[in-house]
Nucleic acid binder design. Sequence first.
DNA 1: ACTCGGTATCGATGAGTGTCAACATAGACA
DNA 2: TGTCTATGTTGACACTCATCGATACCGAGT
Lengths: 121, 121
Amino acid sequence: MSKSEVVELSVLDAGTVAPCCPPITAGELSQDDAEKMAVMFKALSDPVRLRLFSKVASHAGGEACVCEISDVGVSQPTVSHHLKKLREAGLLTSERRGTWVYYQVAPSVVAAMSAMLDLRS
Amino acid sequence: MSKSEVVELSVLDAGTVAPCCPPITAGELSQDDAEKMAVMFKALSDPVRLRLFSKVASHAGGEACVCEISDVGVSQPTVSHHLKKLREAGLLTSERRGTWVYYQVAPSVVAAMSAMLDLRS
DNA sequence: ACTCGGTATCGATGAGTGTCAACATAGACA
DNA sequence: TGTCTATGTTGACACTCATCGATACCGAGT
């Protein structure tokens, strides 16, 4: 395997849209939709990933260099592993610029999760 | 143990409020907040639990009898186990009425998750 | 070409989780 | 009391996952 062998799971196309699911109150989730959403929720089901994600999301422009967010109390390989998980779930995208790698939030995917939890109160 | 011996983890007090965390864009999550939120997201990180939750949430009044939602492709003990997880995470509450047990959604906790994912759009 | 700092991958390990069969418990009703 | 149905609990097993050290990869300088 040479290099761009990434493929990126892209549970729901990461970058672009991803309506996927209506609010849960609107009806029962199908098996397929449930599995898709479960992947996204699982990505945020770890404290370390949650902190990494929040560090990126709260950064100016919704983007941050790995070097700026790595201080979460675990080793560098572990940080890299968690960022990969978030990428595979479609919640973050990454881009290398010179020496450093920058991660950005994928707003549409996050919006899909939020919308699904909207109980329209 | 007589009866109301439940204790219910109540990560954030299940029933009442639970602001817990502001939108992720507002700043980095603290270690504590990250751990609290992780518990809730983890509760929804399984397809079976997601379907059970959606069945309750989409039911009239946000309430459903176990007997009405048990058809998710796994055994009865497994359904019971998943419902317990959702209860412990504060996403559902349960109440026995005669022969049947009814589960209700805890709107405030779900709202907290949704609010956290609100990217200010 | 060589070195150096930043990041990703690999392999191993211990902890956690989903699942089921078997059993226990709680009401309802005879 | 005894039986029947609806749920919850227990114990076991296979599987996944978080974590780390070691190592590989990639750009940038020298």
